[in-house]
Simulated assay, not measured.
Amino acid sequence: MARTGMHMTKKGFSFQGPADGVHALKSWITPEDDLFLVTHMGFLEIDPEHWHLDVDGLVGNPTRLHLSDLQAMPQREYMSVHECAGSPLAPTVPKRRIGNVIWKGVPLSLVLERAKISSHASYIWTSGLEWGEYADVEEAYQKDLPIGKALAEEVILALEINGRPLTPERGGPVRLVVPGWYGTNSVKWVGSITAADRRASGAYTTRFYNDPAASGMKPVWGVAPESVIVSPSPNDLLSADMPTKIWGWAWGDHQISSVEVSVDGGGSWRTASVGPREGRSWQRFELSWTPTSGQNILLCRCTDECGAGQPLTDARNAVHTVKVEVDP
């Protein structure tokens, strides 16, 4: 049942993103105009004066917080990539919906501390306030975090993005943000938090956003290592024998340790230079290149500090390919 002071402004699945895709992502910090927007059930608009957050479950002090309460609590900024996991109906199809932004808000750990979370709690359930239907499912959008991640310093109840208050389209006035994990876990329009001793049982944790693994189904949580070529793009005019630069972004839950680029369709690979990261930001990579005339097929792949890399195909983080035509 909808709370007072809120209404859906658009119903149904929705996606918005830059027309040039990843080739538009030329800035270290992604402007909101170039940052994707995805919703399962539609967009929700909430009157900030009516918004509140209920914290319950395995807590010693069930708590209701209003926006002014959160605004009065200590806040922190955190830079992080923000990436859509892609469609849960086609999880092996890469969508490359990505950006790098600065979030600001209240650490979730402070809210759980205020509510006196029980030592028996092993998961934190977070529910959004939107309503509607997605893939024949009509229920609250609810996700969960294992307690270790929920208490991590980077996980916040965000009030701002890139120095500006969250708009309704971004999940404002308050959304959960889980840096290093796919965007599906960063619940928009958050309305309730429940401490529990088990995983949430709703469709968005059981039916959707799980990948097959050797041990069974694995939740879509941490962002897998991924990289994209920003430049050149297929629309760029390149001339043979004119030195140019291939550059792009690499990212993941864990820091990227190396990036390789192929200029011959994967026949051979060259090591690119890789820049540092801040928080869980993306990292810039570069490679000098002198193109040859005709069609050139460029690929990039990265490896993180744990040794995980990118599959060539059939994965949300599959290797990115760019085809460019080079004039004689």
Rank of each mutant, 00 (worst) to 15 (best):
G5N: 11
M6D: 05
H7P: 03
K10C: 06
Q16I: 08
H23R: 05
W28F: 08
W28D: 10
I29A: 08
D33S: 14
D33F: 05
V38D: 11
F43V: 12
L44F: 11
E45C: 13
W51V: 14
D56Q: 09
L58G: 12
V59G: 13
G60E: 12
L65I: 03
L65N: 02
H66V: 04
H66P: 05
D69T: 03
Y78A: 06
M79T: 05
E83N: 00
P88H: 12
V93K: 04
V93I: 08
I98N: 00
I98H: 01
W103F: 15
W103S: 11
G105K: 01
V106N: 08
L110Q: 05
R114W: 11
A121W: 02
I124C: 11
W125C: 05
W125Q: 13
W125N: 07
T126R: 05
T126P: 07
G128W: 14
E130D: 15
W131M: 13
Y134A: 14
A135Y: 12
E139G: 04
Y141E: 14
D144L: 12
P146M: 07
G148N: 11
K149N: 13
E160K: 07
I161A: 10
P165K: 08
T167Q: 12
P168N: 00
R170L: 13
G172I: 02
G172P: 02
G172M: 03
R175Q: 05
V177E: 09
Y182Q: 10
G183M: 10
S186L: 14
V187H: 14
V187I: 15
V187Y: 15
G191A: 13
G191E: 09
A196I: 08
D197L: 07
S201Q: 14
A203N: 09
A203W: 11
Y204S: 09
T205L: 11
A214G: 07
G216S: 12
K218F: 10
G222N: 15
S227Y: 07
V228L: 01
I229K: 05
S231Y: 13
N235H: 06
L237V: 12
A240S: 06
G252A: 02
D253Y: 09
H254G: 04
I256T: 00
V261L: 09
V263F: 08
G265S: 02
G265C: 02
G266P: 04
G267F: 04
S268N: 02
S268T: 10
P276Y: 00
R280T: 00
W289P: 03
P291C: 03
Q295P: 02
C302H: 10
T303Y: 08
D304H: 01
E305V: 01
C306W: 01
G307N: 01
L312P: 04
T313I: 14
A318G: 11
V322G: 11
P328I: 01
